[in-house]
């Protein structure tokens, strides 16, 4: 048989497959759009949480100052948000304004996601990770905080952890998992064993593996997860990921990673 004959044979496949192939692309795109909407919704939720939290703290007064739009830059295959919000920066042990004295090494150029403005990126003196960097645009300095990697870029777990300065179990100071009803402490070694052996999978491979042949209702009901926070040494960083116990996956910073179900069970039973 020649390739032309095989090509001819492919032309004889079932009509239903041909028609469904178009529908499946639309369905897949819809799934992706749902994911993107979910991401946008998450950002909005975060924006809403801040004034609500303030409202609660100030016993009934709402800060009605306008919410500033996100200023997102792409750098090194990831999205970073430029910010001067010290509520956020304090979590990384940063308390002072960015200026020339704070910069360490030149790392490259970042580009604004909506205005295409370029800026120089520097690491911060005595700051062990690249989760926060300094951006210099028009002689002005500001901080930018890592958000997540650009979709569909393969990000090995080691790379993701190194962004946050995590290279061993000893960097994990404290960890806990949230269930529907309670909060449980986790051992640093169990969490390190889980994340250090995680294998990157693309979103499409994840959907193919986990949701192939599942109805939408089944997907919704099966999609229970546990959220885990890790606080790393040095700078205090809240490293959060979602654990899909039934499927053997974790989801962090917009990426899916395959892990062993045993490792998840060990982590969540290690109270």
């Amino acid at each position: 048989m020649t390739s032309e004959t095989l090509f001819h044979c492919i032309g004889l496949i079932d009509d239903a497959l041909i028609v469904k192939s178009e529908k499946n692309i639309l369905q897949f795109k819809k799934q992706k759009v749902v994911k993107q909407i979910a991401a946008v919704a998450a950002v909005f939720a975060l924006l809403l949480i801040a004034p609500i939290a303030k409202f609660i703290n100030n016993s009934g007064t709402i800060d009605d100052s306008p919410i500033e739009p996100l200023r997102v830059y792409t750098f090194n295959g990831a999205y970073y948000e430029a910010t001067d919000d010290y509520n956020v920066l304090n979590n990384y042990g940063i308390y002072e304004k960015a200026d020339e004295t704070k910069i360490d090494k030149y790392l490259g150029q970042a580009i604004s996601d909506d205005t295409s403005t370029h800026g120089n990126v520097y690491s911060i003196c005595n700051f062990e990770s690249t989760s926060v960097l300094i951006l210099k645009i028009n002689k002005e300095y500001e901080y930018m905080v890592y958000c997540n990697n650009i979709e569909e870029r393969e990000v090995p777990i080691a790379e993701l952890l190194s962004i946050h300065g995590i290279s061993s179990a000893t960097d994990i100071e404290n960890a806990y998992a949230l269930t529907d009803t309670s909060e449980i402490n986790c051992s640093s070694h169990a969490i390190w064993n889980l994340i250090s052996t995680a294998r990157y999978v693309s979103a499409s491979d994840y959907y193919n593996d986990v949701f192939a042949g599942m109805s939408e209702e089944e997907q919704q009901s099966a999609n229970h997860n546990t959220v885990v926070f890790v606080v790393s040494k040095g700078t205090t960083q809240y490293f959060r990921f979602e654990c899909y116990r039934d499927f053997g996956y974790i989801y962090l910073y917009n990426c899916y990673y395959e892990v062993s179900k045993e490792a998840i069970n060990t982590l969540l039973s290690n109270t």
Partner: peptide
């Protein structure tokens, strides 16, 4: 389904 769609 997505693999099948891609192949076709």
């Amino acid at each position: 389904k997505i693999n099948s769609a891609l192949f076709i």
